[in-house]
Structure formats: C-alpha cells, structure tokens
Amino acid sequence: MGSASSTPTLASRVPDGWWMSHKRYRYYMLFAMASGILSLGSLVLLVAVSALSKGSQAWAGFLAMLGSPAGLLLSVVVLVPTCFFAVRWLRVGVKIPQVKLGPMPAPGAGMLYVAHFGLLIGVSLLVILLLSGVVA
C-alpha cells in the first residue's frame, strides 16, 4: 500500500450486533431468516408426498397431524415468512434482469414487475384450481 500506511491507524471496528442497529438491517435479517424457513415448508411438503405414496391411510394420518393445533401453528410459522419472502424476493428481483443479455434488449422495470407478480398470481391460481378439484 501507499505511504499513508506508515501512519498508525485505528482499525475499523465491527459494531457489536450491527444487524440490530438499524431498521433496514433488521428487516434484511428477517428476510434472511425467512429464506431459511422456505426449507421448512419444503420439508413438510416432502412428508406430505411420502404419505401420499404410502396410501390413503398414511395420507389421512398426515392430514390429521397438520390439522391439529400444533400442525396449524406450524403452518403459520411457515406461511407468514414465506409470503413475506415472496413479496420481497420478487420486488428486489426486478432489479437484476434489467441487463442486455446477448442480442436480447434489456427488459424494463415495469415489464419485470408485471411478469414477476403476474407469475405469482398465475401459478397460485393454477395450483389452487388444480388441487381444489375445480378443474379436473
């Protein structure tokens, strides 16, 4: 490094518990934790598929377990962070693809917002329609 390094300096300090020091940081750390909770949701779905493969009795057992107060509490613990995650992910994700990739022109922010949230609404409707039996 340059000549200035001969001057004694005070090392930059790590603020203790920096993530609690600012509202935006706290919000970001919540987002990071919500990211982890996605996998908890995936695990529950994995158990569901496993029950499904074992037959109708195992499936009924799984539904009874998830329908119990503890099961419903688990669903709140999964769904609230997952929805929070989905909205922030799709919102901040809009910034990334606004770049020219090869011959394709860079998509605009407005178009990406519509695409991201359109996809969320479209896929959700499709899942609900298919699984509820409205569309066979």
């Binding site: 009874a64 099961g71 688990l74 989905a86 994700g93 969320l120 896929v123 699984l131 039996g133």
Partner: peptide, 24 residues
C-alpha cells in the same frame, strides 16, 4: 428463491392448511 416465491405459498397452503381442514 423463484420457486419458493411463486409456487410454495399456494402449494403449501393447499396441502398443509386447506386439505387438513377439509375445505377441498
């Protein structure tokens, strides 16, 4: 992240809430 944001909320809701409560 994309799959988690777009697919997981509805899929989880149906399988882990809607079905157990007998709504469907």
């Amino acid at each position: 992240g994309f799959v988690g944001a777009v697919l997981l909320p509805a899929l989880y809701f149906m399988v882990a809430v809607g079905f157990p409560l007998g709504w469907f």
